[in-house]
Every structure is written in C-alpha cells, then in structure tokens.
Design a protein around this nucleic acid. Structure first.
Ligand code: FES
Ligand code: FES
Lengths: 143, 143
DNA sequence: TCTTAAATATGATTAATATCATGTTTTTAT
DNA sequence: ATAAAAACATGATATTAATCATATTTAAGA
C-alpha cells in the first residue's frame, strides 16, 4: 500500500512528534539510529518533509529536526501525498483511468467502500492523534 | 495495492471467463490484444496461472487458454496470492514484523478494519461472481 | 509420419524504487 | 572573522519489478 519511503517518513515524523521539539532538536544521525532507517535515506526524506512544512529544521551547530504544534495538526494523508502521491492510494485497483461508481471495474464494489473509509481516516487523523496513541501505549513504532 | 502483474492476471482471467470455454479456446495473441497487455508479458502470467490451475490450457494447433466451471469457482484472492503473495495485502502498513491487535503500529487502528473487510470479500468472491457482474454490465473491464 | 501451430520454460533487458555519497550553504561559538 | 557542525541540494549506484525474446515441447491435421 505505502512505499518504503512513506513508511520511513511516517516513522520519522511520529518519532519526532514524541521526542523532539523547538528546544530539543534532533540530528539526522540520531533519528536514523532510533528508527532504524539508513542515515542517507532518511536524510533525504527529512529534507523533503521540511521543505513541505511537515516538520521543521534549522541548520548549523545546535541545529536539527523537530516538529512544532502547527506541524502536528496536519493529517497523516499529507505525508503520504507528499512522498507517494495520493494516486497511489486512491486510483483504481485495476488501473481504470478513473475510479468511480459510474463505470466501475469488477473490483470496485469489493474494495471501494473499505478504501474510502481508510482514506477518510487518513485524512482526518493528524500526526498529533497518532503520536498520542504512541504516548498512551495504544500503539507502537516498528524498531 | 496490487502489482501490475496481478492486475493483468485478473483482467485476463475475467476476460477468459466471459469469452472462452473448453470448445472455444483463446490464443495468447488474441487475449493480449483484447485486454491490452503486452503479449510476452501476459503469456508468462497465463502460463503460471495455468500451472496453478486458475485456468486451463492445451498446446498445439487449436490449442489455447480457457476457463472451466471448476476454475470459475475459485476465489479472487487465489489469483492475487499466486502472483503477488498474500503478504503484499495482509502485512503491516508500517512493516512491523507481524500485524495484530496485540502490538499494533500507529496505523493499524486506521486501516485494519477496512483492510480485513476487503480481504474477506476477496476471499469469498469467486471468478464467476465477478464475471457475472461483467455480464450484467454492473462492472467493466479496463481496455 | 511430417509440418505447423500452439503453449511452456527459461533467461535477457529495461524501467522504477530504494539506497548511498558528497559537495554547498547556513548558523553557532570562539 | 573563522572554524566547525549541522541541514540542504544534487546526483550516483544498487536492487527489484516490469517487460521482452527465444528455444523447446506438445498436439492437430494433412
Ligand atoms: S473503478 Fe476500479 S477500483 Fe474503482
Ligand atoms: S500492525 Fe501495522 S497495520 Fe497492523
């Protein structure tokens, strides 16, 4: 469903939501070690996410990545969209040009209701929502 | 969600369910043209599906692919499993080793109910079920 | 039995993702 | 001012998935 890049991005963002903030920035090296994603790989993703305002960063000594309140209130879907594009999730399961009730492919009736529900949740739940689940031990990040 | 190969396989199987049978076999060339998938590519997939008894085939002149009643009563999921492996659909969205309620990743609560529903449908609906939808113009195959 | 038409088996190539590497810019602290 | 520490920008390499090619086997029909 999600690319590796999206999974890594999500892990990094949620990790930062829990463990970093404006006065406690984290360097790529530490993030990489804690979420177990190759340094150079996650670095590239973090830069993209920073540019797109999913998270914040500052350069130079004492610099690093963090996530502020504004960042936290963004929907999970936005991260997926930036990295994979919404199409990856929303497009027709059999690659019909466009997916709708009017000219549905044979899988549409089977998957669309579930998929719509899933998309609605990814669009309504925010980074903060999921970070809370982690904090309350209702969910756990992959090592 | 599905690989290109799975999509092509599904298209081919459903196409055969509608347009071929034991006395009216279809050659790779015609299938390829009608479902708009490269000949050499769909040939390889058809061979695999034939070996795994999703469809039937005979060699030589007057030979070709077709699909009989036994073939038709198999669940859609079996095709996906043969081509992609169930893991592609069932595994954790964030790549946790195993996906369950006990140690869920942060996305589990958002996606698992929908995904379970979808999987149940893919496992209960048969090739014949979807072929019927096509026959009744309730669904349409991508060109 | 011989020729021909089909699937089958196997492998090669190409394209897309994932991963890695490195020089440039910015900021802090001396 | 200068040196060092960090992100940033850009591009290179490696791995996997998608696509293509071809020699072999089987069955029909002359
Ligand atoms: S038309 Fe194929 S999934 Fe909607
Ligand atoms: S644990 Fe991640 S989707 Fe179930």
């Amino acid at each position: 469903m999600l690319s590796n890049s999206s999974k890594y991005a999500l892990k990094a963002v949620l990790f930062l939501a829990l463990h970093a903030n404006e006065n406690n920035k984290m360097m790529v090296k530490d993030i990489s070690e804690r979420i177990n994603v190759p340094k150079a790989y996650i670095a590239k993703l973090l830069q993209e996410l920073s540019k797109r305002r999913i998270l914040s960063s500052t350069k130079g000594p004492k610099g690093g990545f963090y996530i502020n309140e504004a960042n936290k209130n963004q929907p999970i879907m936005k991260i997926i969209d930036i990295i994979d594009g919404k199409k990856r999730i929303e497009s027709c399961a059999l690659s019909l040009e466009d997916c709708n009730e009017h000219i549905p492919c044979p899988l549409h009736a089977l998957i669309n209701p579930s998929r719509s529900k899933m998309i609605a949740l990814l669009e309504s739940k925010t980074i903060n929502d999921l970070a809370m689940d982690l904090k309350l031990n209702k969910a756990f990040l992959p090592v």
